[in-house]
Design a binder for these strands. Structure first.
Lengths: 335, 335
DNA sequence: TTGAAAGCGCTAACAC
DNA sequence: GTGTTAGCGCTTTCAA
């Protein structure tokens, strides 16, 4: 069974002819309501609607150089951590009348660079979330494009980051209040800027309260990697494990269970991100929530602002975090 | 601190001048490698690279009418069910050298219609996942755009749907094998095409094996709605509950637990989708897996194919499903 | 094999 | 207020 191919769309000239005005008048009716007679404008809009006319964004962009389109690049769309970021960014873009293009870099710097290159001329700017690109490449990209980084800070480039300083302090205070004398940090990939910040924050906070912290790893930020990480925890003899992220924490908890280590009775487990699932597992996971949706929205808003102003600033934002205490942490009971 | 605004990008004319050829030759060097002297071509490409030139997709699109961009619209980006769809679609689009635009319709038909209207002229086609639009609107949209539906079937419009016929049979067979004489279906929103198919499949399959099924609801497809649904299950006195989707199932299980009903000892619970989290909860959830990533990829591939051929067909695809048996289902023990 | 020129649909001067 | 005109960056005839 066959059906007709998509109809050709009406152009501004079709509307102009049908309405008995010039193309520029139609254009003005849409973009410059003030500078056209009210009656003409209404007539034009009527005709446009009857013809099903929508301005062609491509043609518009060609003239103005602006596409009203923003790109968001994330390492892995299926990672629930990014769901909030995407949602927030999409919302902020839509609210401003812009379109959001989503790119999955597949955790690869090469793919990310390629996407930036390809998408560059077609968008007004980028939000790079958890970028895998080295600083130099990022700087180069920022020369050609409006750019906002999410959870990555580079001097001279605008960024939005979670307040890991406060967040890690909350974690340490929580563990210390439960009497844990020490903790291990199960580190993620060394390239992870967030990961480095998390570790630095934990060290500082632990130092401040006289707690000992040690770093183990690195581990992949996945559930699968949790097995190896959990075994390392067991070997370490510690009573508290802070994991690079919730995915890893989930894997760690599962493995501890398998090995007969009780959470939180024997070992307390903390994660980062508060992803979907953190309150589904058993025990439910204590984790540092990052307000990813706010972060995504803020990044887009900052990006829009960047495109609007004449000079660029590297003003960056720090977003609050808060510890969600659930069942995976409890009092220290030295074995 | 100020930094320069994004540099102006090199145009085809810059390259032409620098290379000492005409713009058309540069154009050919990029798009028609065969019709230009090998040496000239290499020279042009060298110059282009040194200038950091990338063809402007907008200008290209203006001429050809094709943008190499596809749009995927989903009701809710944060719903883990769609993560797979998005990933699959993104992958297929990238593989074909196309860009994917993602839209969140916020479960609203109005937002969806608006997005289709706005994005229409800027993309080569749409994948509408779990569309909320009525049939008539969908038909109209399909007249103006290349369109592929995901989990929705309308005669004359190409679609990709999960094989709920086989899937629901698997569910019923599984429950019947455990001796459950009856089951209830906790229905989702009445507008949900998938939901209607699921119920129809369950009825047929149950009839075939002499099992009784009853429909309860409708309930929102959320964890929160699970409380009301679980209470209805308790009232019904049944031993098996099949839920509209995993989100609802998660909520139902939590509530049953709170009310002291044991899963699966007292009631077996089945979901649909196999979302992230289905194997995190306690007990882990038996659910019908849908291969959402394949579905997303297939939808995009079909869409591309649609744009390439001269005549449109409404050929639709049915994707296999399989029941993932976990801990939430077990033998019937009449109380 | 290459160049010149005419648009693609729209906006932005510049007239009237 | 409204029409005319000249491009935006690129592809694509049509000549050479």
């Amino acid at each position: 069974m066959d059906a007709p191919r998509p109809r050709k769309r009406a152009t501004i000239l079709d509307v102009a002819r049908e309405a008995g005005v010039a193309a520029s008048t139609v254009s003005r009716a849409f973009t410059n309501p003030g500078r056209v007679n009210q009656a003409t404008r209404e007539h034009v809009l009527d005709v446009a609607k009857s013809l099903g006319y929508t301005p062609n964004p491509m043609a518009r962009a060609l003239e103005s150089g602006r596409t009203e389109t923003l790109a968001l690049l994330v390492p892995d769309i299926t990672n629930p951590y990014f769901a909030g970021v995407i949602k927030g960014a999409e919302g902020a873009a839509a609210r401003s009348g812009r379109t959001l293009v989503l790119g999955d870099t597949q955790e690869s710097a090469a793919t990310e660079a390629e996407l930036v290159r390809r998408l560059g001329p077609a968008v007004d700017g980028f939000v790079l979330s958890a970028s895998r690109l080295p600083d130099t490449e990022l700087r180069r990209a920022a020369e050609l494009n409006n750019l906002v980084l999410l959870n990555r800070a580079i001097p001279g480039i605008t960024g939005v980051v979670a307040d890991f300083g406060s967040g890690t302090r909350q974690i340490i205070d929580h563990l210390a209040s439960h009497g844990h004398p020490s903790a291990v940090f199960l580190a993620g990939p060394p390239e992870s800027w967030s990961g480095r910040r998390r570790w630095a924050g934990l060290e500082d906070a632990a130092h401040a309260v006289g707690m000992t912290v040690r770093r183990l790893g690195p581990y992949a930020p996945t559930r699968e990697a949790g097995a190896a990480a959990a075994d390392a925890v067991i070997t370490s003899g510690t009573t508290a494990a802070v994991c690079h992220n919730d995915m890893l924490a989930l894997g760690v908890m599962r493995r501890l269970l398998e090995r007969g280590v009780r959470v939180p009775d024997d070992v307390s487990v903390v994660g980062f991100d508060d992803i979907f699932g953190a309150d589904l597992c058993t025990p439910t996971l204590t984790t540092l929530a990052e307000h990813t949706q706010d972060a995504g929205a803020r990044a887009v808003e900052t990006l829009i602002h960047l495109g609007l102003q004449r000079t660029r600033t590297d003003q960056s934002w720090q977003l609050p975090t808060h510890l969600v205490v659930r069942e995976s942490t409890g009092p220290c009971r030295i074995r």
